[in-house]
Nucleic acid binder design. Sequence first.
DNA 1: TTGAAAGCGTTACCAC
DNA 2: GTGGTAACGCTTTCAA
Lengths: 328, 328
Amino acid sequence: MVRVTIRDVAKVLNLSVSTVSRALNDKEDVDERTRIRVKTMAREMGYTPNLMAKALKGKTLGLLGVVIDDNANPFYAEVVKGMEREAKRHGFHLLLVNTAADYSEQVFAIDFLQNKGVDGILVAPVKDTIPNEMDPIKVPFVIVGRHFENSTFTEVYNDEVLGGYLATKHLLDSGRRKIVTIQPEMDIFPTRGRTEGYRKALREFSNGLLDESLELKSSPEEAGLILKRYVDSEGKVDAVFAYNDMYALEAIASLKTSGFKVPEDVAVIGYDDIPYAVYVSPALTSVALDKDWLGRTAVELLIKMISGKVLKKKKYIQKPVLRVRDSG
Amino acid sequence: MVRVTIRDVAKVLNLSVSTVSRALNDKEDVDERTRIRVKTMAREMGYTPNLMAKALKGKTLGLLGVVIDDNANPFYAEVVKGMEREAKRHGFHLLLVNTAADYSEQVFAIDFLQNKGVDGILVAPVKDTIPNEMDPIKVPFVIVGRHFENSTFTEVYNDEVLGGYLATKHLLDSGRRKIVTIQPEMDIFPTRGRTEGYRKALREFSNGLLDESLELKSSPEEAGLILKRYVDSEGKVDAVFAYNDMYALEAIASLKTSGFKVPEDVAVIGYDDIPYAVYVSPALTSVALDKDWLGRTAVELLIKMISGKVLKKKKYIQKPVLRVRDSG
DNA sequence: TTGAAAGCGTTACCAC
DNA sequence: GTGGTAACGCTTTCAA
């Protein structure tokens, strides 16, 4: 296919490229009839602007880089979906990169994306403790689902402490006393926050004495195993507050095969409220997040930043809600 | 940040831009020591090539467009993940667009992606009956998970007939006789194929007489409702072959609330074998697909096409496998 | 209201 | 081996 350029259109119409350019871009100072003529002819000839050329002239390409752990994780999948929809509304597109929670992958991704000429970046950082890990980002960016202490970054995240608190409080209120929490090794905002909320509820319940904090670390795949090992050796656990629904599902499966009844013997609460939480049995009680909101808001803010707007508010925090079902 | 260009490097080194360009791109005809000098200085000055400018000169941008129904669908999520990994291996990036199975969205997406300068497109078409719906694609493309009859497109897909056959045969073999299948309205390769496989198994079993083909149409959300309505009015169903695992989960939920035991009263088999199939109860029997392979292979082929290779083989077909668990 | 020309950063052709 | 220059397609002064 031969590309139709602005020059071709100009030639046919006996106009200059500049006039055609102005007409196409709805600039002032161009005769209305000329504009019509140009636009009609352009359409007729199948003219499409060359975005590279525009970009070279300092215009935006309309690309947003997305750096996340794993797009197949149902939590991120929903977030990305929200991002995508919002981006589309503004004529932007998403450039997706999975990091598998690997820091060097993230560094590489950020570098790469900028080379591709993205106008901005949406990132759920692998580490969120050292703010200057964001230094290599030279374009506007928004942090998604993470929070850097004392940073000036634009961030969209969840009140994880509240989530952890809500779950643990509910367990406590329904009579559970030996509540174990199982979280990933990673020291990221969500793990810190959820654990903190868990401790807070415990502390509150015991009048300041945090005497029964049972904290396990595990990968999602091993959650069941680690939990089983703990129960076998320590015994007496009557509730589990899992990092997320995947952990919770693993926990339930493991407890069941160990002969425990869920929730009779052991209650289990998850986090994220993925769509499948409804179908498992017992139906999963989970801390629910509006994932679409997370993605949508992040993109909305990023696009504002790209278009040069200065945001007065930098932190956008969502309050999670406990969705009580049968597992706890 | 001020962008460092090839010209800046040239000036500092007292060389011409052309020499610097050649040195950087490892072309012939440039003194080895000059090359070293240039590369060192370029790194030192923090030079990064402007991809737009390269693209304008007809070079590739390294972008692959992905057009699918919904990235949050666990099936596509896994496929996209496979694509992403393979693309990364080759230095490519993914531009994601969801169509929500809407044809006009697809048309728009394809147009848009090409404007963004993608080097190729991976598409799971919304309709796969009219080959010339692909006409607007002017770049290399690969069809994913769909198959156009008699087309010359490069396609990576599954043997859906076999999948439907396997599931139905298994149901028949385990003594089920009133097997209903529930499929989406859409006339796409997977629905056609799975239904055909279902009919084939029935026909085979009844010695050529396809006397008990019970075919229901439904959206995923309404699958439970539609099924219930059918069972209530027609009664006597002892097995369900669902379009995919979402349909199967809805079916199971609906059957359970109607007082049926799964699988004792009614067996249910799904399709896709999503990760959550293991956790529901009863654990879902499902037709399993290697989603990663699908994504990986599609990208591999697309990149070959982009680099000008001519593929002798155009159709890449995967044989599904029945993963028998508890539901059927 | 329109046109000519410069320039964005890069590559490639052609001299030297 | 190296340098000058045109060209990729577009936008944007500056004149006319």
